[in-house]
């Protein structure tokens, strides 16, 4: 059942199902994302979590920060975990064996929503096989990647999501290195190419855009992938109060474009149209440099010998932005 949220005041009526006194860093975007995802619906939600910051900070015995059922098994299996929980729901519902409260809400048309959270390590890298398998099989769940472009939980090592030029603890900038050497993996397109009905990129700073996409995700039949920019005050090294400001710089520079890919499918699952919509167009597309300058992980790029990486990043961003617009226009 889609929750009506016309404005922020209406959203603020939500009774959070995620609790404070968790152990996340002050200013962590993960928490903001989790709240927006959970508050976008009033249907019951059940969560699986890959190993990572969110997992280790919200379920440290003897405390839980979840007011909704939650499971963590390992680093690489959040997708199959939620798929199996959802499969259990389907079979118990079919067999008439659901627990009473779940049955009652299901009778009201409020089926449980199944959500998995994973960081970029658990999503782009070690959990990718499980994620790809679960998407191919078409389970009905929403996978939310909390993308902070680094293994933050273990102290800031590079992942395949780390952008070129970022200094991390395993791709540090140094006398002869500008930091990370590889371009960021295009996870959104990869997941869309699995034929998923709905895939989107979001930023928690653009709350309305994000809530709308999460709601579309809840409504979709089949696996949904949401890639959420999760600005990391610790590993991106900005002050804790700047999380929203840095996120906005990412969006306004188009380093982190907001868009969605919809695979429209017929009743047999055949995709008859793929649509890409850009959901946010910055009034003034700011130079990438402004986004980079706000984060000390890129500080070394401003040395004369590394400036070419900034130029490279700008070029990559411009080409991608151009391509997104072309895909949108062409309706493919």
């Amino acid at each position: 059942m889609t929750k009506k949220i016309r404005n922020l005041k209406e959203l603020s009526l939500s009774n959070d199902r995620y609790e404070g006194a968790n152990l996340m860093c002050p200013g962590c975007a993960h928490n903001i994302i989790v709240r927006e995802v959970l508050n976008a619906t009033d249907d019951p939600v059940v969560v699986a979590n890959a190993t990572g910051c969110l997992e280790v900070c919200t379920a440290v015995y003897p405390k839980t920060s979840w007011d909704t059922s939650w499971i963590h098994i390992g680093f690489e299996n959040a997708a199959v975990a939620i798929a199996a929980v959802q499969t259990t729901y389907e079979t118990l519902k079919k067999q008439g064996r659901l627990p009473k409260a779940a049955q009652k809400l299901a009778d009201e048309g409020r089926d449980i929503k199944f959500v998995a959270f994973g960081g970029d390590g658990g999503t782009y890298d070690i959990g990718f096989q499980s994620l790809s398998g679960a998407f191919e099989r078409g389970h009905n769940f929403m996978y939310v990647c909390l993308d902070n472009e680094v293994y933050a939980n273990t102290g800031g090592q590079r992942s395949s999501s780390t952008p070129i030029g970022a200094s991390t603890t395993t791709s540090p900038a140094g006398a002869v290195s500008y930091g990370e050497k590889m371009m960021k993996k295009s996870i959104v397109e990869i997941m869309a190419d699995h034929g998923a009905p709905y895939v989107a990129q979001v930023s928690p700073s653009k709350w309305k855009d994000m809530i709308k996409k999460v709601q579309k995700g809840y409504e979709a039949k089949g696996p949904v992938f949401i890639n959420a920019m999760s600005a990391c005050t610790t590993e991106w090294r900005f002050a804790s109060e700047d999380t929203i400001a840095v996120s906005d710089l990412g969006v306004d520079s188009c380093m982190w474009p907001l868009y969605e890919i919809i695979n429209e499918r017929d009743e047999h699952g055949i995709i008859y149209r793929t649509k890409l919509n850009i959901t946010y167009r910055p009034k003034n597309k700011i130079p990438v440099e402004e986004y980079l300058a706000a984060q000390p992980r890129f500080k070394h790029l401003f040395k004369p010998e590394n400036r070419h990486i900034i130029d490279l990043l700008q070029k990559a961003v411009d080409i991608r932005w151009e391509n997104l617009q072309r895909r949108e226009e062409a309706g493919v």
């Binding site: 199959v80 499969t87 499980s130």
Partner: peptide, 25 residues
């Protein structure tokens, strides 16, 4: 009557069993 999920690895097979078990299966 139950469900069979043909997963993509044994790691996922056991993970799926653990999660389904936690969900009451």
């Amino acid at each position: 009557d139950g469900e069979f999920i043909m997963v993509e690895s044994e790691h996922s097979a056991m993970s799926g069993c653990v999660a389904a078990g936690a969900a009451g299966a």
